[in-house]
Nucleic acid binder design. Sequence first.
DNA 1: TCAGGATAGGTTAACGTTAACAGGCGAGGT
DNA 2: ACCTCGCCTGTTAACGTTAACCTATCCTGA
Lengths: 367, 367
Amino acid sequence: MDKKQKKPVTLADIAAIAAVTPMTVSRVINNSGYVHADTRARVLGVAREMNYRRNGLARGLKRQCTETVGLVIGDIANPFAAELSGGVREVLEERGYTVFICISEHTAKEDVQAFDSLADHRADGIIVATRASKSANERLAELIESGIPISLIGRDFRHPHADLVMADNLKGGYEATCHLIDNGHKRIGFIGVSLTDGVRLRRFQGYLEALKDNGLPVEDRLIVGGREVGEQMPGYSTEEMGYDGMMKLLELKSRPTAVFARNDFTAMGALNAIKRAGLRIPEDIALVGYDDIPLALHTSPTLTTVRQPTREQGRCAAEFLLRRIEGDHEQPRAEKTFDCELIVRESTLPGAEVVSGSNRKRKIKTA
Amino acid sequence: MDKKQKKPVTLADIAAIAAVTPMTVSRVINNSGYVHADTRARVLGVAREMNYRRNGLARGLKRQCTETVGLVIGDIANPFAAELSGGVREVLEERGYTVFICISEHTAKEDVQAFDSLADHRADGIIVATRASKSANERLAELIESGIPISLIGRDFRHPHADLVMADNLKGGYEATCHLIDNGHKRIGFIGVSLTDGVRLRRFQGYLEALKDNGLPVEDRLIVGGREVGEQMPGYSTEEMGYDGMMKLLELKSRPTAVFARNDFTAMGALNAIKRAGLRIPEDIALVGYDDIPLALHTSPTLTTVRQPTREQGRCAAEFLLRRIEGDHEQPRAEKTFDCELIVRESTLPGAEVVSGSNRKRKIKTA
DNA sequence: TCAGGATAGGTTAACGTTAACAGGCGAGGT
DNA sequence: ACCTCGCCTGTTAACGTTAACCTATCCTGA
């Protein structure tokens, strides 16, 4: 009687014991159709006793939907990913969907793998928040073509039948850089990208444009930390890139008076390199980060940074996806760009906003 | 002809066009059995042209396995979660399994939801790395009872048929505290737990034991940051707890000379509170964190902390799970405890290890 | 009295895939 | 000539669930 692998309980098993047909059990489990109260109670009792769990495979197969959505992110271990997935989950779980997360640490191969897994397992839709790449984009296009609802977050890829949500990082980078220029800086470094592969990083483009619009030259030596250091590295360790990059900038005979880091972790690394060199922030070197991670408020000095409404982007992408799942899968693209916000703190302006630990709004209110 | 939702291509569709039976197509797709080279090529051609994706639901239903494993974590946005999932994925993806991650932000309800989703979708096994709770443990027991392979990481729950992997955080906490005591500290604070609910946090127990073994009293006022502040908060924001907790300790008439924080984020918050108060680390207050996140190396001063082999725990849990999936689902429990390592840096010992950005080993070598 | 609706439950046939079995055909051995 | 074995393909019947349809009561109101 004791087989090695015990078989899961099925509707038929319950039906046999409760002396009804599987269909009736199904009706009880799903609370649909008419079932007599007595019958319902009896069936429910048996189901509970036998520890029944419905079979999502069979269910999905028959109903042609799984009530499941996939979220593809790189770089977990990053407040950004956490906020994003939080927003996505908020919206979807309220509507009865389960969110499964697939991680692709920023390689195109893993991206494609993640898409395929989700498509194969018939997720009702996919939200993609990884960086674009040629091969992954092609596969994405195939999936869209074959009718799977897809919603993109901050991904540089457009398709007539995939929704798109992003933050205006170009403007964010532009404003951060302008802020430094406004404070009198003329030699501003950038950490976290190389000139050649930086064309895709919008915040870097914003940096370049701000320099140009203000008649400042772009100096190659002031741009450090490109691919060789870690285009592929997990995000939470980009602070190493910031530390190393800053060290390089400090070794220049004429070093920059201000630095813009690609994200707050990178900025944090730079910050510590500056302090270790015995220099003051912002008097000797001003510093701007990007993302406004919680920690940015608790460094000393506190970090000037650019905040993007991450949670809202997640919510929005989820809402777009829902509309597509529950409506026409091939409806025209919805697109929304969120504005970023420059948060000025002590690392660029002595005596700027200093906020103690807990009086900081954490959740963006529901729309 | 253009329906609103296009139907996915099936084996039968391909079979019709390639003039074979679905079974033959199945053989081609799965590379199993005998198929003539010409037939294979023809079928493959049609499949590619029609953009076929196999239906994992039907496949799983028929084969009684999905080649899918669920990983339940709280607290994404934490290097710990990232390393853990990295280890898990390394092992499982190499063996052809897809890892789906479910997030449960440390509430029992979400835990149970995650378990249910994964069980319903017939994941072949589940790895659980969230904190234990009564209701979640009960559901877990039910799932184990019904034959789903389960592997636990750092979860205070034992079951004869579920594997268990953990780090010896009791010893870690003990050693961290002893390190402070060895350096002459007699009044040592703890941030991140309240006396009442702290009984489950092993590293806190280690702290208590170390005090006791060294004849030092436990002072309630030195233990701050319990449930009221944020037992439920996302981990990446526990630095707020550190900041607020430290502020509380600083307000005491006789403040501690050393502080042990429940994790590095908390320590980071504490560190900034101390600096903002104009005190020196470690001269005025020594500080120890826990987890050795990458950032711990780049604060000033660098942070003394306890490192647990996170990636290896993930790998180990995955290996245990595989053994269970591919063997007897009800084999006896495997259990492994990993040792932690105290990393002494400047925050407790002036002039201790200072390491520059990149010469630090990142990946633990494959066994 | 009887049409018509609400209630209760059974029957059938899929959803897409594949394990198991059943040929058929040709080559090689005896 | 016969048997065997390797190759190639087809047939059948599930896997567990549910949509769609059907039957049989019972009640209500005209």
